[in-house]
Design a protein around this nucleic acid. Sequence first.
DNA 1: CTGAAAGCGCTTACAG
DNA 2: CTGAAAGCGCTTACAG
Lengths: 327, 327
Amino acid sequence: MTTIRDVAKKAGVSVATVSRFLNGNGYVSQEAAIAVKAAVEELNYELNTVARSLSTKKSNLIGLILPDITNPFFPELARAVEDVALTYGYTVVLCNSDEDPKKEKNYIETLKKKYIAGFIVTSNQLDAPHYANLKLPVVALDRVINEQIPTVVSNNRQGGFMGAQALVDRGSKNLLFLRGPEDFGSANDRYIGFKDAMERNSVAYETVFCPFHFAESESIVEKILQDNKDIDGIFASSDVQAAGALKAAHNLGLAVPKDLQIIGFDGISMGEMMTPALTTIAQDIYKMGAIAARVLIKQIEGQPIDNFMNEIPVSLVVRGTTKGAVT
Amino acid sequence: MTTIRDVAKKAGVSVATVSRFLNGNGYVSQEAAIAVKAAVEELNYELNTVARSLSTKKSNLIGLILPDITNPFFPELARAVEDVALTYGYTVVLCNSDEDPKKEKNYIETLKKKYIAGFIVTSNQLDAPHYANLKLPVVALDRVINEQIPTVVSNNRQGGFMGAQALVDRGSKNLLFLRGPEDFGSANDRYIGFKDAMERNSVAYETVFCPFHFAESESIVEKILQDNKDIDGIFASSDVQAAGALKAAHNLGLAVPKDLQIIGFDGISMGEMMTPALTTIAQDIYKMGAIAARVLIKQIEGQPIDNFMNEIPVSLVVRGTTKGAVT
DNA sequence: CTGAAAGCGCTTACAG
DNA sequence: CTGAAAGCGCTTACAG
């Protein structure tokens, strides 16, 4: 392994000068710069980041804490984070928290020992002490926490409104809203948006809490559909819920979208694979991850952050589980 | 931050002794051990892994190189790797290669600079020079490479056989086999298994190359199904292909499984969400990832590796796209 | 069994 | 503009 010392010797300068050149700070004369540059190239020198980290107490590692990469919403997010991190020379460590504060804390502790540069966090625990005392750049992704910390979320409220309205526009008169977990802010925003829409339309509706879980959604919806034959439109807070609803409809022999229209939320690629393909309020998942990464890196590099709240627009993607608009 | 020096002072010994105690190598007297232990606890000391890495030229970082975390097969694999890595005190870095040798090489280079402890790699490029000269523990996951490097794969050949046989047992007489990419060893093994089964049964069949991509599978299968109305059973080399085939069947108004049976391969959770739910040859994906991680860590820690070839059994999961066995 | 010391490969005041 | 030197927090021969 060739070290900075080798470069210095070859260039006929001190290691300090090489270091300054490499980091672009401090003054380096033209002459010295040229000599160093040549030596670096000739020796094929690459800076040892571990040594640098020890010295600066910083690294180019980014921690990505998310509930579970196995949940189909997260891989695309992770992909985006990883892509832009790579672009800027950062490396991402994947942390599955299972929404467990202890696991999160554990990750934070072990990564701090590695002088981790910052965290992108998808968690409801962001007000927990291990975040409060973090003293490290953090950005909240997919979940709003507080105004102190930069956040990237979809415009969930608008999405909630749009989904409900789309159902009404297409003739549904009796809606069922599958509400996500109560302690999950983004899900609540979707609910609020849904309610907004209900206030402007005179249609019947009911809501039910429903986990973001396929089989549970299926059985919850199946039960409700049996009790209430009037329901002709379901708006789910997630695509996985919507998939469960679709399955329930199939189980009961309901024709989708004729008897029952369904709209999901998320826009994960699985939605296209269903039959009929799922109409959904699509989040720009990749964009969310990409922006989160950029905002984090800005923080890490001490650049000013203009927007603490980055709300990403959502869009209605009409596929097969809804009819053409009635308008 | 409290350092080893603080601990040494408090315990009344040298830093060398503390280090020996911490690492469990070299001799440490009972007395000294007790004092150090007390000091560590009192000071809440935690070893700085960056400093250790610089000194030992080793880290507890593991690189997980996979094509694309966005492909639904990989998240579960990644999850398993991450889970067992955590157990053993390792941290995993996620690397999406897009099957691009340049990207792989790039990751390997940047991680080597971090004294990465080893790699788990899902790649077809393992014979490329950047792996050959690696001099680092590696395990091949999901793809066989050569006998030098420990490998974890499903018993793909057996799976190919089982899927074909399951179709025949359930009355299909005209099979279509969706063959995966040619340069992908595991896909070839599935094909070989399929052929094995065909030799023992007198049914008609045809095969077609098909990428592991939903929309392309859909259109390829739709075309074939139109040309050949006799096909009554499709065996796909992946669940995503099978989802495309199912969609194609729906498009053509074919009843599944009555007119056409479909079996996939992988066992990803998406399969359950389809209608009908997908019958599939399920890989034990989590187990594959977990074993890969354990084998890698064994290597890293210099333990003997008993099996260079870990072939994980697959199983037939019967759901809705096949009929009850005819037998 | 233990400690002093050198070394891992950088960065960064500081003096010049 | 530049270099000598100390320091980041560990590990590890080596001498005792």
